[in-house]
Design a protein around this nucleic acid. Structure first.
Lengths: 216, 216
DNA sequence: ATTTTTATGATACAAATGTATCACAAAAAG
DNA sequence: CTTTTTGTGATACATTTGTATCATAAAAAT
């Protein structure tokens, strides 16, 4: 049986199990044995592929970061010929907020690691903020595009606005996770920010919304 | 020695110890023994005053909520005769962001409980969102005052704006905790939102800032 | 074919944790 | 002065956890 095996693929399987346990019972409930059971392997194997628990947790954080990166370049890579920079930002917001279970799990995971990193400096490295930083950079780029195209006001500070928008995304996302904000309201708050940045700012007129709009 | 003792005061002492341990080593490191050691009492006493660990944790959450309430009514109670509703909001923002260690510890604690509540429904009750809801209500009230006084634009939806501002506060606070945002930038983002809400909206002119303004 | 990695299972171990029990001192009640 | 309630210490116990050890099967190298 012990044919020479692909370590990377095996590690990925184990990290899948870690994410599953963390999503179901919280990151604090992640133990070597729980991960092993979830993956259907023996405790020894988890030890074998990630020497220590700290190694496993660190690998989980790395994976979270890589997954975030892949997700974003996969979903929003082709906006260079964006038909509408405002619509592009709105789409990004929809992707960023924890609406579907996958996104909820991601936010949950990120918050869990953020909390851990506050007391365990081993996790506090650049891994946690790399994702948000990339997102902020992307928002700033889209803002710059829209500004140059005359869609956004000329006097906005794209970097500052991107930072604020990212902060708003994070805050609304957390509020949604704990049930303090409803998804629709959160999205509306973000779109209101877009209204502010657009040049033609008639309060009542909502820009054309792509796709299906079912009332309430 | 075992004179009849004030249970409430004793419970408060133990919860102090809980907060100290959580601030130093994280909420996940809170154990009955760690709390007992921090409080300088025996394990048995922690059991005596909070029957179980779940009870202790729940009491910690209740205390966090009460502390938050007390803190806000203490600091911001007297704005009925506010000289400037905009300044009142700016002051509220300064208080809400995790700048000093106390506020950082509070945010840290709240995030830790929020993460726990996502998998332990016993903690998920209204305790977590009561604080944010109160803050949002207060923001909305100040906004309404300023709107009526002609300081804020007449066409703003105070409830919606309050929700967005609270979300921004939370998101920027988290970003500050993980080191992704600097305090000055976070405050600037919030004040930019105030600029937007004010009637006289000249982009360059910052309204008179009360108190000391040291450059950068 | 033999030796040496590579991969995996079974298990042991010390430490920590939540919970429970026994004992006992001091105050209050009778 | 008993007796009962209240408050506190010491300790025991089962469970869980991270880590380490021993054995060994299969493949690769020689």
């Amino acid at each position: 049986m012990p044919k020479t095996v692909d370590h990377d693929k095996r590690r990925a399987m184990i990290l899948d199990a870690l994410f599953a346990v963390a999503a179901r019972q919280g990151l604090h409930a992640v133990s070597l044995r729980a991960v092993a059971a979830e993956a259907g392997i023996s405790l020894r194997l988890v030890q074998y592929y990630f020497e220590t628990k700290a190694g496993l947790m660190q690998a989980g954080l790395n994976r979270l970061e890589r997954e975030s990166n892949d997700r974003w370049i996969g979903r929003l890579a082709p906006p260079p010929d964006a038909p509408d920079t405002r619509a592009a930002l709105a789409a990004l917001f929809r992707e960023a907020l924890p609406t579907d279970p996958q996104s909820r799990a991601f936010h949950h995971m990120w918050m869990s690691y953020a909390v851990l990193a506050m007391t365990e400096p081993d996790l506090a490295g650049p891994g946690l903020v790399a994702g948000p930083n990339r997102l902020q950079t992307r928002i700033a780029a889209i803002l710059a595009d829209g500004k140059e195209a005359g869609m956004f006001r000329a006097d906005i500070d794209v970097d500052a606005e991107a930072g604020a928008l990212l902060g708003l995304i994070h805050g609304l996302g957390t509020a949604m996770l704990v049930g303090q904000q409803k998804p629709a309201a959160a999205l509306a708050h973000l779109e209101r920010q877009l209204d502010r940045l657009c040049v033609t700012k008639k309060p009542g007129e909502n820009p054309p919304r792509a796709g299906n709009q079912r009332p309430a």
